[in-house]
């Protein structure tokens, strides 16, 4: 059994954002494509938590959706436990699908409002035929217990629960197919901080108990630092840095990683003055040439405007930056 559970190679996704055909003909415009992710490579080891951080438009959710088969990659391949994922083939994917699950951002949208909680959690069990008859609901009761709710809650509807409780229900559903790998897309960003702590603690406990592997998608660096072993930083659909968890926070390499860290509000009241971050994320339909970060980068020079930097290993992290590569910063 190999150590790597999930491998992503050259993952690229375009979205066709062209106007309708007739408008294009009349206004003499070409087709327009938005590059949501470009040539993304990473590996997730069994039992670890790998995090992808980035701001809106960085392509982190697109990557998550491609991994679980909600979106088809334009290019590249995804390998799960040595098997290449091919979502078009239903039968071959069926056994593979049971082994990964997803937790969504908005617990108010991720549970069907017309279903009983019990049926929501039982859906994966029934779909994969993991239990029959009365055993299904017994399993549901056990799962509810695992996530800190009571078996009696199965008879209620989602609207009877608070946001944090709903997220527990969503986690119970994700666990119900006994997966090894769970993609968590901003699992706490819709929750209040005190509830966020409960959910993050629960996710950690479950990881220890079931040996789960997580892919954590988040824009919140403090959550990412708390939860992950390794972190990938995304900017405009490209992975600019991959580093061990604590290392990224003590010694960020890429100028964008540094900027993100600087932008985190300082709760410790150390009096540290936040560094002003210049500018905003450019339009992904027409990204800047070369390194997409160069218009905001304090270390940009001629080469950054022409060539796209490739990830280079240094100091235990992979960084896609010419300034780092050439040892200028």
């Amino acid at each position: 059994m190999s150590d790597v559970l999930l491998k992503v190679e050259g993952l690229t996704r375009y979205f066709d954002v062209s106007k309708p055909w007739l408008n294009r003909v009349i206004e003499r415009e070409d087709k327009q494509f938005l590059t949501a992710t470009a040539d993304v490579n990473f590996e997730i080891k069994r039992g670890e938590t790998f995090a992808l951080v980035g701001e809106s438009g960085s392509g982190k959710s697109t990557i998550a959706k491609m991994i679980v088969g909600l979106l088809e990659p334009s290019e590249g391949k995804i390998t799960f436990d040595g098997q290449e994922m091919n979502f078009a083939s239903g039968a071959a994917m069926r056994t593979l699908r049971r082994r990964f699950q997803m937790i969504f951002q908005d617990p108010f949208a991720s549970l069907n409002p017309r279903w009983h909680v019990g049926d929501i959690i039982a859906e994966p069990i029934r779909t994969f035929g993991l239990a029959k008859g009365r055993d299904v609901m017994r399993e549901v009761g056990r799962l509810l217990d695992t996530v800190g709710l009571s078996a009696a809650d199965a008879a209620k509807f989602p609207h009877e629960f608070s946001g944090g409780q709903r997220q527990r229900i969503a986690i119970a559903r994700a666990l119900s197919s006994k997966p090894e790998f769970i993609v968590c897309d901003e699992p706490t960003s819709a929750l209040d901080v005190s509830v966020q702590a409960q959910i993050l603690n629960l996710m950690r406990d479950l990881q220890d108990e079931f040996g789960l592997t997580y892919l954590l998608i988040s824009h919140d660096l403090s959550v990412v630092r708390h939860m992950s072993n390794r972190i990938g930083v995304l900017y405009l659909g490209r992975l600019v840095e991959v580093a061990e968890g604590k290392r990224l926070f003590t010694n960020p390499k890429h100028p964008y990683s540094r900027m993100l860290l600087d932008a985190v509000p300082d709760l410790a009241l150390s009096g540290r003055r936040r560094q002003q971050v210049e500018g905003e994320i450019p339009n992904p339909i027409n990204p800047p040439p070369g390194c997409t970060f160069h218009p905001r980068c304090p270390h940009a020079f001629e080469r950054c405007k022409r060539e796209i930097p490739q990830p280079v290993a240094a100091d235990g992290s992979l960084t896609a930056c010419f300034a780092v590569e050439e040892g200028r910063i």
Binding site: G69, R94, M102, D106, S110, N112, A170
Partner: peptide
């Protein structure tokens, strides 16, 4: 596009089932 439908798609539920059991009641 709501997440409960995506959750059903992730586990590979049949489109017809998603339409009838998930979307139709809503």
């Amino acid at each position: 596009n709501k997440e409960y439908v995506q959750a059903a798609r992730v586990i590979g539920a049949h489109p017809l089932k998603i339409l009838v059991r998930h979307i139709l009641p809503n």
